[in-house]
Nucleic acid binder design. Structure first.
Length: 601
DNA sequence: CGCATTATGAGTTGCAGG
DNA sequence: CCTGCAACTCATAATGCG
């Protein structure tokens, strides 16, 4: 059973990377084996079981005929029946509103002392709790999946009523919190039940997203479920340990200098790493996103990508602009080589003409990160009038204002007292794309800035991917997710790595047109197959793709950063944000490719 | 409707200086 | 240790124009 082997391999990859030699996780590993065995030997029951839970809960909320069922549901959660009927009367069938009302009532009745009283036990019971939790999860995996699904709702209610003490419990507060995050009460209550009441919102949100993602799959559900179970167990352990030690040593920190495992000019003190068995290919994979994401995001990304430590690199070591990004990949890190010719590394090298107008008090050597929008003409006008009032150097206050704005909007000097934002073709050059890569073909100037701002820095990525040249002298098949304007493809091509077939998934039509146009101009011999949406790629389609191209050698892509990026004032919601949650599809697809590739061997 | 233009901070980190 | 300050960030939404 290759599937079973595959899932069993996922264990053990902790930070030290010494695969399965780590004593601390032995218990966890053994549990994994049990879990995985149980799941993989009865795949139909697994999927049936999980979906059945969700399905029955949803049915009880949407079915108008079953009002008593709804009452039972909330009474089972520990609310008084009179309150429940009242809440249902006020809110109709909307379970979210009902819960909100119930929690509000409870909170009003509850005294703060009592709420605090239910929390925080002495430290001695920490590990007892831990053991209980782990065995709970294990019994879920084994028992509930194997059980007849008809008994599930009863068991659910039983567990709930046992755990509820009657007052406003931690669980109820969790449910409210998750409901406020936009999850349904059904999903939230399942997540709380599975993960325990002391799990953080982050853990619970992860669980729900993974469950949602799993719900959409059918034939590969066992794999995903077992993976999620394992991740959650490990995560809980981490949280426990962290709470006990009261330190934040577990969270990922950004390196200084941000050079990852090295740049063409700089090498860190330690340049060795060992990967766990489960993280190795085929396929190789390369994942990218913004380095300065909200707290906890990179911990989550790393956990979902086989616990590989992200490589944080600032592209200012590869070009004249900064670009702080994190890369999670299972590529070798020895014998990397840079793209040639080397790009300009300073502003003056990149823009020789600007030197004439560059004031001595503007000491910038590198530009800041290229974003998706540019500074306004009004701003450059304000700067010009501010500077030209003075004959020599302006006073410190004016210098500070001008420099703040120039750094913020990446402005360069293009004339006497004149600053301006970068032109699109200048951005192309700084990011390592061929000139006019994004020009013409029906794309607007605004969209050019947006597509370029969302792209890779080609020299940086090419340096990391260069190791593939020796491994695949005859070329590679690439699955490119969130391709954008084809940064990965350009990097591989410029590095002299032959592209056999490229399967590209990109939502934006103008971006797909850009990649298609580039593909046809560069005399590629293979074929470019493109898709619109990553969510369309289910197991069946991926298997079809793999059969037709003969295997995927590299899965590459950076998932949307909209909800992670600091520039976003409106919806910086983290990994669960509308667009950024597509990260979970990257994981899902990578796992599918991995499974199918393993089966072919 | 497509396109261009503009205004709109917070969250996080690092660091100097108590 | 703490505290204040400086620096930086793959963006969204509203508006106007043709």
């Amino acid at each position: 059973m290759p599937v079973r082997n595959q899932t069993s391999e996922h264990m053990g990859g902790n930070a030290s990377g010494e695969e399965s030699a780590d004593v601390d996780w032995t218990t966890d590993d053994e549990l994994d084996i049990l879990t995985d065995t149980a799941i993989s030997t009865s795949p139909t029951l697994t999927s049936h079981g999980t979906v059945a839970i969700l399905g029955s809960m949803e049915a009880s909320s949407s079915g108008g005929a079953s009002c008593s069922k709804l009452v039972k549901h909330f009474v089972g959660m520990g609310f008084p029946e009179t309150l429940v009927s009242k809440a249902i009367e006020e809110n109709g069938g909307d379970t979210d509103s009902i819960l909100n009302t119930l929690l509000t009532y409870s909170a009003l009745e509850e005294s703060p002392e009592q709420q605090l009283g239910t929390r925080s036990d002495p430290a001695s019971s920490e590990y007892d709790t831990l053991l209980d939790d782990v065995s709970d999860m294990d019994s879920w995996s084994e028992d509930e999946i194997a059980d007849d699904t008809d008994s599930m709702p009863e068991k659910h209610k039983l567990l709930l009523s046992l755990e509820i003490t009657g007052s406003l419990t931690q669980e109820q507060r969790k449910l409210l919190s998750l409901a406020n995050m936009g999850f349904t009460v059904e999903d939230a209550s399942i997540a709380v039940e599975r993960c325990g009441t002391d799990a953080s919102d982050e853990v619970l949100a992860d669980f729900i997203c993974a469950a949602q993602m799993a719900r959409e799959e059918d034939c590969y559900l066992p794999i995903i479920i077992s993976k999620v179970t394992r991740i959650l167990k490990k995560r809980k352990l981490h949280e426990m340990v962290r709470r006990k030690n009261d330190t934040d040593d577990e969270s990922i920190r950004l390196p200084n200098p941000m050079i990852g495992y090295g740049t063409p000019s700089q090498q860190p003190e330690r340049i060795h790493r060992s990967l766990s068995e489960s993280s190795m290919g085929p396929p190789f994979f390369y994942y990218e996103n913004v380095a300065l994401a909200p707290k906890g995001v990179w911990d989550a990304i790393s956990r979902f990508l086989y616990d590989i430590e992200p490589e944080f690199v600032d592209s200012k070591y590869f070009s004249a602009t900064a670009r702080k990004r994190g890369y999670v990949h299972n590529l070798p890190i020895e014998d990397r080589f840079p793209l040639v010719p080397l790009p300009p590394l300073t502003i003056h090298q990149a823009f020789p003409l600007s030197r004439k107008w560059w004031p001595s008090w503007d000491t910038r050597d590198k530009l800041n990160c290229i974003q998706t929008v540019i500074g306004s003409a009004r701003l450059t006008e304000r700067i010009r009038t501010a500077v030209e009032r003075f004959d020599g150097d302006p006073p410190d206050s004016v210098q500070k204002f001008v420099m703040d704005q120039c750094r913020k909007w990446n402005l360069v000097w293009v004339g006497r007292n004149k600053v301006a934002p970068l032109e699109p073709d200048e951005v192309e050059m700084l990011l390592g794309f061929p000139k006019n890569h994004t020009r013409g073909g029906g794309i607007s100037r605004t969209d050019r800035y947006k597509s370029l701002g969302n792209s890779f820095q080609v020299d940086t990525v090419a340096y990391h991917l260069s190791v593939l040249k020796k491994i695949f002298p005859n070329g590679i098949n690439v699955l490119s997710l969130f391709s954008g304007i084809g940064g990965a493809e350009v990097a591989l091509h410029r590095q002299g790595i032959k592209l056999k077939n490229v399967v590209s998934v990109e939502k934006s039509k103008v971006n797909r047109d850009i990649v298609r146009s580039w593909w046809e101009q560069t005399n590629q011999t293979g074929s470019l197959i493109d898709f619109d949406d990553v969510r369309m790629l289910d197991g069946e389609r991926i298997e079809q793709i793999i059969n037709s191209v003969g295997g995927i050698d590299l899965v590459v892509g950076g998932s949307p950063c909209n909800n992670l990026a600091g520039s976003n004032r409106v919806s910086r919601d983290g990994l669960e944000g509308k667009e950024s949650a597509l990260f979970y599809d990257y994981c899902r697809i990578l796992d599918l490719v991995k499974c199918i590739m393993a089966r072919k061997l």
